[in-house]
Computed example of a mutant assay.
Amino acid sequence: MARYEYRCRSCGATFEQTRPMAEANSPTTCPAGHTDTVKLFSAISVGGRAGGPAPAAGGGCCGGACCS
């Protein structure tokens, strides 16, 4: 099951609905009972922190200590 966001063209309401992915594009009804709805594009955000480049790691088979 996935959560999708829809907007009603009749009343302008935005609402979410949990449904199987196979039904993502199937018609749905808004909470006010209107059937003229459209699925919205939802961008997801993945947590984490932004920062500089990853720390440099040693190379080679032993972390760079034996390679010159």
Score class of each variant (00 low, 15 high):
23 E>L: 04
64 G>I: 12
64 G>T: 06
21 M>K: 14
42 S>P: 02
4 Y>M: 03
52 G>I: 10
65 A>D: 15
65 A>V: 13
61 C>N: 12
35 T>G: 12
47 G>H: 05
35 T>L: 07
56 A>R: 14
6 Y>W: 06
9 R>A: 05
64 G>H: 08
4 Y>Q: 03
5 E>P: 05
50 A>V: 14
14 T>L: 04
7 R>P: 01
39 K>A: 09
52 G>M: 06
35 T>K: 13
29 T>K: 01
16 E>C: 06
29 T>Y: 01
48 G>E: 00
32 A>T: 05
28 T>D: 03
9 R>E: 05
59 G>W: 07
4 Y>E: 05
15 F>W: 13
31 P>R: 01
62 C>N: 13
12 G>T: 07
14 T>I: 11
21 M>H: 08
45 S>T: 11
36 D>K: 11
22 A>L: 03
2 A>Q: 14
65 A>F: 12
16 E>N: 13
58 G>K: 10
6 Y>L: 02
66 C>P: 07
36 D>T: 12
19 R>E: 08
51 G>N: 04
34 H>R: 10
37 T>C: 15
62 C>M: 09
37 T>P: 08
10 S>F: 02
25 N>T: 07
10 S>G: 05
60 G>A: 07
28 T>E: 01
14 T>N: 09
11 C>V: 02
24 A>I: 01
66 C>E: 11
29 T>F: 00
60 G>H: 08
68 S>G: 14
66 C>H: 13
59 G>F: 05
34 H>D: 06
55 P>Y: 00
3 R>A: 07
29 T>M: 01
27 P>E: 05
44 I>F: 04
10 S>A: 09
53 P>S: 15
58 G>Y: 06
14 T>D: 13
64 G>F: 07
13 A>W: 02
2 A>V: 10
17 Q>E: 03
3 R>K: 15
15 F>C: 02
63 G>V: 01
41 F>T: 03
45 S>D: 11
48 G>V: 02
50 A>M: 12
7 R>Q: 15
14 T>S: 12
29 T>C: 00
44 I>H: 09
49 R>W: 11
34 H>Q: 13
16 E>A: 12
66 C>I: 06
45 S>H: 09
67 C>F: 02
15 F>E: 08
49 R>H: 14
53 P>M: 14
25 N>C: 01
54 A>E: 15
29 T>G: 03
7 R>K: 14
8 C>S: 08
24 A>Q: 10
51 G>H: 09
4 Y>L: 01
52 G>C: 10
65 A>Q: 15
28 T>I: 05
60 G>I: 00
37 T>D: 13
43 A>I: 04
24 A>S: 12
56 A>K: 08
50 A>L: 11
9 R>Q: 06
12 G>Q: 08
17 Q>W: 03
12 G>Y: 02
61 C>P: 09
67 C>N: 11
30 C>R: 09
37 T>S: 13
33 G>T: 02
25 N>F: 05
68 S>Y: 07
30 C>E: 02
39 K>Q: 15
51 G>T: 04
28 T>G: 01
19 R>I: 00
18 T>E: 15
54 A>T: 13
10 S>W: 03
57 A>K: 07
55 P>E: 00
54 A>N: 14
29 T>A: 01
55 P>W: 03
54 A>K: 13
53 P>Q: 14
45 S>P: 00
19 R>Q: 05
13 A>Y: 03
